[in-house]
């Protein structure tokens, strides 16, 4: 696009990073090799990490060779019955759904206020909502578990839900606030000028406009909750373990059971996450899973 502009300029046309020649030179420069090499190494490692779990879970015996001697599904049935995986998966889904619903109900109204108006103490409120995201779960998880045990709320599913809500409510707020900000306030004003009261403005105008944002942030909360280890670990009782905690427990008790059952459980966990991920990626941009920044659609 800027070829004619830069070609005449001094010292720009031929440098490796220059835009006009990028398409041609991606393969050619040493910098590009280095970058793609690093990405490649990372991806191979990732593949190895995921692949070895996958292969081991299907293998009969696997000692000093590249691949297992034979393949079987027995580890899956073993893991399924020994760890009571059906119950664990049901608990996991119950926790996830409850956390999503509650965090949307609590978070969206608050994010509306944060997006739309200034008020005294707004910075403090904002910081309060930001802290649970910034702090690592284990820091506030221990005092939180103490309090929940004190009120006999921990050690069962309600404790797991409450603990998981702590980072998720702020997460919904932080993802929804920029989403609401980009909805022109004059649309709400227009509804008011047409005679709509606050309730109608919310149900008829805002709710339909916010739906995509709510959906996106719900899915992100779902992924986070299923993957959240620390908080669930600290507050779960024997009957309220989610999949990730059950996996940790089985790994930590290694030696008692065959490594393969642990791996097959890991594969089940992985499949749950992958299904969620595939669903999530239908609705949200990959970077949103990380950055909470609502990117404009550019591609």
């Amino acid at each position: 696009m800027s070829t004619t502009l830069t070609r005449g300029g001094p010292a720009t046309g031929r440098t490796p990073g220059a835009e006009p020649s990028r398409r041609r030179r991606v393969v050619a420069t040493p910098g590009a090799w280095l970058v793609w090499g690093a990405v490649g190494i990372f991806l191979v490692t990732l593949l190895g990490v995921v692949g070895s779990v996958l292969v081991n879970s299907f293998g009969t015996q696997w000692f000093d060779s590249w691949m297992p001697n034979g393949y079987t599904l027995q580890w899956y049935s073993e893991a399924w019955s020994e760890y009571g995986l059906l119950a664990v998966i049901i608990t996991t889904l119950e926790v996830a759904v409850a956390v999503v619903a509650l965090s949307v109900i609590l978070g969206v109204p608050a994010s509306y206020v944060l997006a739309r108006q200034k008020f005294p103490g707004k910075k403090i409120v904002y910081l309060l909502f930001l802290l649970p995201i910034m702090m690592p779960p284990i820091t506030y998880g221990i005092p939180l578990a103490t309090v929940l045990y004190k009120f006999h709320l921990a050690g069962n599913i309600s404790g797991v839900i409450l603990a998981n809500l702590v980072p998720c409510v702020p997460f919904v707020i932080m993802t929804m606030t920029p989403f609401i900000e980009q909805i022109d306030p004059s649309i709400e004003h227009a509804a008011r000028m047409s005679g709509a009261r606050t309730w109608s403005v919310f149900t008829r105008i805002l709710a339909p406009l916010l739906l995509p944002g709510i959906l996106a942030s719900s899915i992100l909360v779902l992924v986070r909750t299923v993957g959240m280890f620390e908080l669930t670990f600290l507050t779960a009782g024997p009957d309220s373990n989610t999949l990730v905690v059950a996996l940790f427990n089985s790994m930590n008790a290694a030696g008692i059971r065959a490594q393969q059952t642990v791996d097959s459980m890991a594969v089940i966990y992985m499949s749950v996450m992958m299904i969620l991920l595939v669903v999530a990626l239908r609705f949200v941009n990959p970077t949103q899973l990380v950055s909470q920044v609502k990117e404009e659609q550019t591609d």
Partner: peptide, 17 residues
């Protein structure tokens, strides 16, 4: 505003998308 019974045309139209 909703009780004043006025109509308004906004600069960016503010149509319900």
């Amino acid at each position: 505003p909703e009780k004043r019974g006025f109509g308004m045309v906004f600069q960016n139209y503010a149509l319900f998308p």
